[in-house]
Design a protein around this nucleic acid. Structure first.
Length: 295
DNA sequence: ACATAGACCTGTTGGC
DNA sequence: TGCCAACAGGTCTATG
């Protein structure tokens, strides 16, 4: 599922159950996801309280009281769900809601909240492209090093975007997907941002900055478009394709607000445009755009 | 540096 | 209905 807005939605959904809770144990039902799970995942975390659940780009960061940081990535199909001990549950006996797809429940965090209620947070991932790894003692990890700017907030302005794209001949689509430039965009939101900015995904990235590497109106439009599409998607609770659910079982609704993604053949939604949404493949992945208004 | 293809996996979808 | 190819929100590696 997850690009930045979906990961942020997951984080917000898990936060109430995880922050402040004590980890009783971590149950792994297979030895690996994309990478081998840490052999000591349970022994390093059991008995500790979770002090924060953070996010960097598409990574979730679980910080325990001794400073240990567990880095989680959801890959393409990873999801978390929270299962509360049912009302009236006695200690040690729980009535967890039955879930449809438990075949791919791979990692279970057994928790005890500060109120003494037990819950479990279950990681499910059919394709197993996700992973969990411990950061180094200082919180760093090679997977986090080299990540670019977050597209949230106002850090990504025209001047910064211009400096990132200057001199690059690679298509805008590829540049925006490059996590070392902007961290958190994925295939959906790149298409959406380029449509909002009225820019072709095929245009050379460096072609929207000045010779000196400064911003142009196109750069400003793209920076604003990236920020707005990410902000709008987070506000909508992310996108729920294929009924992809939140941790509490609810659905995001940004998919209804897609302007071009997965809308091949539909009329362009830009008022007065008259064009149609097309689909091309760039570096092996679908790009949706309107050739009439995206130049 | 950069473009492309392939790899990792399973599940869903659309065409015949 | 069945079968099979194509495709899926990510990212790392190899190869030109």
């Amino acid at each position: 599922m997850p690009e930045l807005p979906e990961v942020e939605t997951v984080r917000r959904g898990l936060q109430p159950a995880m922050e402040g809770a004590a980890i009783l144990s971590v149950e792994t039902r297979r030895p690996d996801l994309r990478f081998a799970l840490p052999l000591d995942i349970s022994s390093r975390l059991a008995g500790q309280r979770i002090v924060s659940l953070g996010r960097r780009a598409k990574y979730l960061l679980v910080t325990a009281q001794d400073g240990t940081v567990l880095i989680c990535h959801l890959g393409m199909s990873g999801s978390f769900r929270v299962e509360e001990g049912g009302a009236g549950a006695t200690p040690g006996l729980f009535h967890y809601e039955r879930s449809k797809d438990t075949a791919h429940d791979h990692v279970l965090f057994h928790l005890e909240g500060s109120d003494g209620r037990r819950a479990r947070v279950v990681y499910n991932d059919p394709r197993r492209f996700g992973f969990m790894l411990f950061a180094a003692a200082d919180g760093s990890h090679p997977m986090l090093d080299g990540l670019g700017v977050e597209p949230t907030g106002n850090a990504l302005d025209g001047a910064l975007l211009a400096s990132l794209l200057a001199g690059r001949k690679t298509p805008l689509k590829a540049a925006l997907l490059d996590q070392s430039l902007i961290a958190g965009l994925g295939n959906i939101y790149v298409s959406e941002a380029l449509w909002r900015a009225g820019l072709s995904p095929r245009r050379a990235a460096g072609s929207i900055v000045t010779a000196a590497g400064g911003p142009t109106p196109r750069t400003e439009r793209l920076a604003a478009a990236v920020r707005s599409v990410i902000a709008d998607a987070i506000a909508a609770g992310g996108s729920s394709l294929r009924d992809y659910m939140h941790a509490d079982g609810s659905l995001g609704y940004f998919q209804h607000a897609f302007s071009v993604y997965d809308r091949e053949g539909e009329p362009c939604r830009k008022p007065g445009c008259g064009g149609h949404v097309g689909r091309i493949v760039q570096s092996g992945r679908s790009t949706f755009f309107c050739a009439a208004c995206q130049r």
